[in-house]
């Protein structure tokens, strides 16, 4: 037999993957659909509420949220003005769709990401396993997992949420891990010395002290989720991403730009509000005398 420099691994991987996806679709299609419907139920509800609400109420809500997190009127008014500007671009409905899908994706990221980060902080072994997985999630092109996702969940919002979670959750996991590891060892030791259980230490000491890092992680997750909206719109997620996509398809630079502006405004809004909330949480670190 001749020596082969490049044995054909490509075909093997391709075929196995395809067979595996087929196997999942055939055998677990119903389960995936049930799961998908469960998530979509909340998403559709949220989207309907946001789109049906009077824009004035949404604007006031954003103003109130900005004030609650920062205690600064200037920020509150600026955020309301930014949101109003999206309305003037004619993209209000699309923006509501994008906010809905993004909030659900971020919520799922938090539910999965924080416990994973806590586990990584506790066990070096788990951390060395999860780290390459996170690297993979952040670097592998979204289309690679969109193909099987679309097959499993069908085109539409669900694969978009999945893609967003895969791309956006890793920073939250990493920052939760880092935040907990950086909690002062003597404080944790003191807590142990007073007979605290592991859960009491986690809830009473580690999570509260890691909160600034965790908030930073949530902020990063939101930013990355917004970066995914154009890709998400390609598999039918609608929203402002679709505006950009249509601009691309119709060779309409202007439409692309107004979609882009709307995405940037949403990003700034979420960033400022979560940053301000994060800063207020560490009020105890500043000496107020």
């Amino acid at each position: 037999m001749d020596f082969v420099l490049f044995p054909d691994f490509g075909r093997a991987i391709r075929n196995t993957t395809n067979q595996f996806v087929d196997f999942l679709v055939i055998n677990f299609g119903d389960s995936f659909e049930a799961f998908s419907n469960f998530i979509l139920f909340f998403l559709v509800k949220l989207e309907r509420v946001l789109r049906a609400a009077d824009p004035i109420i949404i604007l006031l809500l954003i103003g109130a949220l900005a004030y609650a997190s920062s205690r600064k009127w200037a920020l509150s008014i600026a955020m309301m003005a930014a949101m109003w500007f999206i309305g003037t671009l004619g993209l209000w409905q699309q923006a509501m769709q994008t906010i809905a899908i993004m909030l659900i994706a971020v919520l799922i990221s938090i539910i999965l990401g924080i416990p994973t980060g806590v586990a990584a902080a506790r066990s070096d072994r788990f951390r060395s396993f999860i780290n390459p997985v996170l690297d993979l999630m952040q670097t592998i092109p979204a289309f690679v997992y969109l193909i099987p996702a679309a097959m499993l969940f069908g085109l539409g919002k669900m694969p978009a949420i999945l893609a967003t979670v895969i791309y956006a959750a890793p920073p939250l996991v990493r920052l939760t891990d880092l935040g907990i590891r950086e909690v002062d060892g003597e404080v944790v030791e003191a807590s142990r010395a007073f007979g605290a259980t592991r859960w009491q230490i986690l809830r009473g000491v580690q999570i509260p002290l890691a909160l600034p890092a965790i908030m930073q992680g949530i902020n990063q997750t939101m930013m990355m989720a917004l970066a995914m909206v154009v890709i998400a719109s390609m598999i039918g997620a609608r929203g402002v991403g679709e505006t950009v996509l249509l601009g691309l398809q119709r060779n309409d630079s202007g439409q692309g730009l107004i979609g882009g502006i709307a995405i940037v405004i949403l990003a700034i809004m979420f960033d400022r509000i979560t940053q301000a909330a994060g800063q207020r949480m560490q009020a105890h670190r500043k000496v107020r005398s």
């Binding site: 002062d184 003597e186 404080v187 003191a190 807590s191 010395a193 007073f194 009473g204 509260p208 105890h284």
Partner: peptide, 12 residues
């Protein structure tokens, strides 16, 4: 119970 060199107080 225990008292620590760098106090070990809960800063929050």
């Amino acid at each position: 119970s225990m008292v620590f060199q760098r106090f070990g107080l809960l800063p929050h």
